[in-house]
Write a protein that binds this DNA or RNA. Structure first.
Lengths: 212, 212
DNA sequence: CTTTTAACACCTAGGTGTAAAATT
DNA sequence: AATTTTACACCTAGGTGTTAAAAG
């Protein structure tokens, strides 16, 4: 299923005429398995798991490759990214384990004639800058554990319109959205050199969860 | 509106590791205006018009750029090409005049670092090979003139399913499809060097017409 | 017991020819 | 009179949370 809300970014500091690929992947935050405790409304550690050896799948933004000038002029939205818990998936979706914590990463990749980047499966060794944002951390589920998340999805996702309450509960939702982390596009600055730099921003608590 | 039936091609003779763009455009067959004569079921010349000065719009296949190996492994379908008669169109659709004859051209463009091909608006001077096929010639209309074309579209276009006759008229349509020109993908051979080569094939009469 | 799967009604988004209205 | 535009019902295609059944 699609990731919702989707990651949206703005990028600056690119070379206007250079061509870039922009891609996203999702990496584990830790090696813990979580369970949701209803009476305290919290995710709590429920054991260890092993994320080792699995290279995360890369989703290339469909506008890639594209000039720095064009990338910088638009908000870059990853709203077609699909997540699955099926480890045998053959449709190129991003594979995650349910009941785990993850964080998306955005990669800006300068096109280099030394590599064939047409069919990128893994990140090249150089010419890549990686950004991630604390506030985009989320917990995976196959069925929603948190009623607030369900309401947020129903109210904000156009495809869930059929489940919206006519008017009555809007106030509650507005309150939640006050701290909703992904309303504004995240900012990437390519000028900060070096790979794996953490694009920092204000850090709010993880709120979003996505069905697998 | 979309062009239907759409142009489908297979290409061979590419360099497996070279990157290529593949694009389509539509050029006038002549400078005549046509009208459809019902009693003889024929398109007849109805005057002259001026196609001069207008550079045809290029539709880049969405898989571009892509390696020769990948292009050669698949049937290349231009089923999302859109036609319009609005000369002020700002959505990048291919602009045609109604009641005129046209022929699609397919261009195979080797990626060359000397040019910025990310946003191709016009064809580069070299590294391009152009193919066209007599049997893909068609006449533009805003309302169908020929009942056989209407039937063909209704029976073959999945979006027109709501207009299909339940079973009864299938025989008539099958007879028409026997000479339907675009059933098999057209064959391009990139080995035939030089630009503007005419990829020849059997020449049947123009049958397809598309709404503007 | 908890978690996952699959079928479903209900949406968004957009591609059909039709028929009536508008234009030329 | 011929051609074009517009609104429309009817489709395809696919993204929602829900629910009941299945799996663990």
């Amino acid at each position: 299923r699609r990731m919702f809300p989707s990651v949206r970014v703005k990028v600056k500091g690119l070379e206007p005429l250079q061509q870039y690929y922009i891609a996203i992947d999702v990496v584990p935050v830790d090696s813990k398995r979580y369970r949701y405790v209803y009476h305290s409304s919290q995710w709590m550690v429920a054991g260890n798991t092993d994320h080792s050896c699995i290279t995360p799948r890369l989703y290339i933004h469909p506008d890639s490759p594209c000039s720095g000038e064009t990338w910088m002029r638009q908000i870059i939205s990853f709203d077609r990214v699909k997540l699955t818990n099926n480890e045998m998936d053959d449709k190129g979706h991003i594979i995650l384990q349910s009941m785990h914590k993850y964080k998306p990463r955005v990669h800006v990749i300068a096109q280099d004639s030394r590599f064939d980047l047409a069919q990128i499966q893994s990140l090249p060794a150089e010419g890549v800058q990686t950004f991630s944002f604390q506030e985009t951390e989320f917990t995976t589920v196959t069925a929603y554990q948190n009623q607030q998340i369900t309401k947020l999805k129903i109210d904000r996702n156009p495809f869930a319109k059929g489940f919206r309450d006519p008017g009555r509960n809007r106030g509650v939702l507005d309150g939640l959205l006050e701290t909703y982390p992904w309303r504004a596009p995240l900012a990437l600055d390519f000028k900060a050199f070096g790979a794996d730099s953490q694009g920092g921003s204000s850090s709010s608590s993880p709120v979003a969860s996505s069905g697998g």
